Amino acid sequence: MYRARRKLLLTALCAALPALGFCTAVHAAAPDAAWPVKPVRFIVPFPPGGGADSLGRIVAQQLTESLGQSVIIENRTGAGGLIGWQSVARADPDGYTFLIAGISLAVTMPISQGQEYDPKKDLKHVALLGGPPTVLIVNANHPARTVADLIDIIKKSPDGLSWGSPGPGTHGSLIGDAFGRETGTRMVHIAYRGGGPAVADVAANHIPAAFMTLSGATAQIQAGRVRALAVTSSKRTVEFPDVPTFEELGYPKLTGAPWFALSGPPALPAPIANRLNTEVRAILQTPDAKAELARQTMEVFDWDVPTFNAFVQKEAAYWSPYTKAMLEKAK
């Protein structure tokens, strides 16, 4: 009722004051001020069960309450995540279509897929949601109990090791490729359409190993279906204190973590981006969200829109050479 009356008032003012240019200004500002007036879609470009999907659902549930409109998760997979990314990059910048993705789609994926991409221009990055470290997992019945065991087994095998990742250009694929270089082992990459299918195939012993987000593998590790051998975090995680870091095992170049974010079309109005950033950051600081994120081994960052976008630029500069090297190797 309030919004309807407000709209009538603005229309009347526009009719009364055309000479002042008031109508144009009001209609430009009104959509931002009233946002949202209908359900908002979060496109997750990977299947359910992975880190992006988990984070998206945590945020969407609480945003539905704080915004007063439904926030709907839509899993739109394909082409390693590029289909979902492109659907948002090309969407109307009206504040009703966003992407839940991260380093793979904001930085590395377009390069690995041969796409011309500028992370500063092709998406507006709204809020950094956080992220878990990448973990090396093997099937629970695999003879390797440690990374050293696995390396020894790989070197003795004429076929090397088949390993999975959430897709080409993802942090898991970059770390897996780097693992092969750092250890001098033959590695055969199998790219999946997300972390969920990759860890499921390791648990079912369809493939022996995978590099993927720790949050995406947590349930299968706790169920005893897969074994975690090492994580890429700078220190051991609270949830899995017995799992060593790659750095402490002598592989400092295998340190780092993927991150997940909320992004929108490049022309997304700043007022909408800033409001959504504020809402998301407040949600991530609530006790319930913190507890759930800790359970999923997610680290949270409290950054505004400019700080986050500057971070994306740094990540692009850092990871681009590694991604291009991976592409050259694959040719």
Score class of each variant (00 low, 15 high):
residue 269 P to N: 05
residue 132 P to G: 10
residue 322 Y to G: 02
residue 119 P to C: 11
residue 204 A to K: 15
residue 212 M to I: 15
residue 300 V to Q: 05
residue 111 I to G: 07
residue 175 I to N: 00
residue 27 H to E: 15
residue 251 Y to G: 06
residue 127 A to L: 02
residue 112 S to H: 08
residue 254 L to Y: 00
residue 93 P to D: 12
residue 147 V to K: 02
residue 330 A to H: 05
residue 63 L to E: 02
residue 225 R to H: 10
residue 12 A to T: 08
residue 115 Q to Y: 07
residue 52 A to R: 01
residue 21 G to K: 07
residue 314 K to N: 11
residue 126 V to K: 02
residue 122 D to G: 05
residue 88 V to L: 01
residue 120 K to G: 03
residue 255 T to A: 07
residue 264 G to T: 05
residue 243 V to S: 04
residue 87 S to T: 13
residue 293 L to M: 15
residue 1 M to N: 09
residue 251 Y to S: 06
residue 313 Q to N: 10
residue 107 V to M: 09
residue 100 I to P: 04
residue 12 A to W: 04
residue 287 P to Q: 10
residue 237 T to K: 00
residue 232 T to P: 09
residue 55 L to Q: 10
residue 323 T to N: 03
residue 45 P to M: 04
residue 45 P to Q: 03
residue 38 K to M: 15
residue 298 M to P: 00
residue 30 A to Q: 13
residue 53 D to T: 02
residue 303 W to T: 14
residue 225 R to Q: 14
residue 306 P to A: 06
residue 171 H to C: 10
residue 18 P to F: 06
residue 88 V to I: 02
residue 293 L to A: 06
residue 54 S to G: 08
residue 126 V to E: 06
residue 19 A to M: 02
residue 146 T to C: 11
residue 79 A to L: 14
residue 203 A to K: 04
residue 22 F to A: 13
residue 238 V to W: 12
residue 50 G to K: 05
residue 140 A to G: 02
residue 131 G to A: 07
residue 330 A to P: 02
residue 56 G to K: 03
residue 123 L to N: 03
residue 180 G to S: 12
residue 25 A to S: 11
residue 237 T to W: 00
residue 303 W to K: 14
residue 159 D to E: 14
residue 280 V to L: 08
residue 210 A to P: 03
residue 214 L to Q: 12
residue 205 N to H: 08
residue 145 R to L: 15
residue 95 G to F: 01
residue 272 I to C: 03
residue 308 F to T: 09
residue 246 F to A: 11
residue 10 L to F: 01
residue 196 G to T: 04
residue 58 I to K: 01
residue 159 D to G: 12
residue 18 P to Q: 12
residue 291 A to V: 10
residue 274 N to R: 07
residue 242 D to I: 10
residue 99 L to M: 02
residue 173 S to W: 08
residue 32 D to F: 01
residue 192 Y to E: 15
residue 131 G to E: 06
residue 329 K to H: 11
residue 116 E to R: 10
residue 149 D to Q: 01
residue 70 S to R: 13
residue 186 R to E: 11
residue 327 L to H: 07
residue 156 K to Q: 13
residue 155 K to Y: 08
residue 225 R to V: 07
residue 118 D to N: 13
residue 276 L to F: 02
residue 38 K to L: 12
residue 160 G to I: 09
residue 47 P to Q: 15
residue 41 R to V: 12
residue 36 P to G: 14
residue 46 F to I: 11
residue 120 K to P: 03
residue 188 V to N: 13
residue 225 R to D: 13
residue 26 V to L: 13
residue 109 M to A: 10
residue 113 Q to T: 11
residue 16 A to N: 06
residue 153 I to Y: 10
residue 102 G to E: 14
residue 301 F to E: 14
residue 20 L to P: 00
residue 189 H to W: 11
residue 188 V to H: 06
residue 161 L to Q: 04
residue 246 F to D: 10
